[in-house]
Structure formats: C-alpha cells, structure tokens
Design a protein around this nucleic acid. Structure first.
Lengths: 115, 115
DNA sequence: TTGACAGGTGACTAAATGGTCACCTATAGT
DNA sequence: ACTATAGGTGACCATTTAGTCACCTGTCAA
C-alpha cells in the first residue's frame, strides 16, 4: 500500500507551489518535454540558478515534479496526479459535463474566429 | 475582444487565489451549496467578516466565484471553469488516461481497506 | 423615520515569499 | 591529480500578503 507523506498539508504545498508564475513555466517546460536537468531548465529563464533550484525544490516537495539522479545530473519529470486531484475537488460529474461543453463551444468559436 | 492588464495575467489571479487555505475552504463551502451570503460563509470560519470579505473579493476577481446582488445581500456562486482550465494545461489526453486509471485504482484499494 | 442589519473601504502591522550571493560537495573527462 | 561542471545550503534583503480595525453606505422592517 502506497502512503503519501504528510497528508496533513499536502494540498497546501501543491497550491502554494502553483501560485508562482516561474514555477508554472517550469511545469510548462516539463509538460513539453520530461527528464530535463536543472541546467537545461535554467537556460530558459531569466533568473539565477539558485532561484530556479529553489522553485524546483518547492515543486518537488509538492509532488508536482518527480526526480531521478543520473551521475552528477538530476532529471526532472512532471507528475500530473496532484493536478487531477485539484480538478476532482471542485468539479463533480454534473459540473464536468457543463464545463466540458462550455469549453468545447468556446474552442469552436475561437476556431471560427481564426478562419 | 477582451484585453487583459499588462503584468497580471488572468491565470495568475486564479492560482494566487487558490494559494490560500481559507479561500479553498470558501470554495469547498460553495461546492457543497451555492448562493450563500457573506454572513453565511463568515459563520463557518474563525475570522472576522473583513478577512472573509477580502478573500471573497480575491476569488471573485479571479473568476472562481461569481456573485449576484439581491437587495442588501450578495449571493456567491462557484464557477468551475478556471479549475478545468488548470487541468487542461498540464494534463493531455494521454496523461489523463494514466492518471484516471491510477486514481481509480487508489480509490478501489482504499475501499477495500475500509471493509 | 429610525434603528438594526448586510455589505464595503483605506490604513496599518506581522508574517511569508522571491531572488541573490558566498561558499560547499560530488561527478566527469583529460 | 586536477580542473571544469552539475548540483546544493544558509543567510540575507525587498516585496507581497493575511488579518484586523475605525469608519462609511445602502437596504429592510416596525
């Protein structure tokens, strides 16, 4: 049986982690391509290595990013599970149908806009 | 055509709004039952009316809560659309299948645990 | 029309957060 | 061995944020 450490404020770590724009960009980068190193991620941001490192630690502590060491490198991977749990907290089956339909309609209209 | 202010993006307001535990409780309360007044929401929290009011304003500015006036009362409703957009930002069709399966399995195991 | 009630604003303090730096450890390649 | 490279720690400062309060506006009902 898998146990998640400190159920207590687990969700607080997740939401706090998502609150910073730099950290969301980091997740975007990992969404595009997994398994990046700190050096790699750092090069895409206007910030010192230390800042990026702090952000990655916060993402990792929140469980949004999972890492694996490979020699002197540390590889970073996106973990979508906490994101899904946010979704499920405030969107039940009923609301999900409504929202999906609404967003589909919105996408359709924007598609027409573009043509 | 809608325009957004220069440095504060729409999604930043949403994530900042979700970063506070009190505001998440407010969303939980509205998830249970919509259309509540400030007085109603205030009674469930150990905080002055002013604190709750500030939090509700932040949620409203972020679009997570929509309101309607009725006489001297202001009714609050949960808007699930921004939550869904967070989900869609980092969970594509492929990951969604994986995550759903994983969470379903987890729920199943916890169900067995309880019996 | 008067008093109670629901909601709202601006200023203020204490705590949390983001970013940088000096300095440190461990691995890779020559 | 030794030098460059990848990553890590603790302290520090500037800014942001949560919460409270004195005071104000609008609505209801006797």
């Amino acid at each position: 049986m898998v146990t998640y450490s400190a159920d207590v404020t687990d969700d607080d770590l997740v939401f706090k982690a998502l609150a910073d724009p730099t950290r969301r960009i980091l997740l975007d980068l990992l969404f595009q391509r997994d398994g990046r190193t700190l050096k790699d991620l750092e090069s895409g941001l206007e910030m010192t290595r230390f800042g990026v490192m702090k952000h990655l630690k916060i993402l990792e502590d929140a469980g949004l990013v999972v890492t694996r060491r490979s020699g002197r490198e540390k590889l970073h991977f996106l973990n979508p599970v906490p994101i899904r749990m946010i979704h499920d907290r405030w969107i039940d089956k009923y609301r999900e149908r409504e929202v999906s339909a609404l967003l589909a309609l919105k996408a359709e209209l924007e598609e027409k806009d573009r043509s």
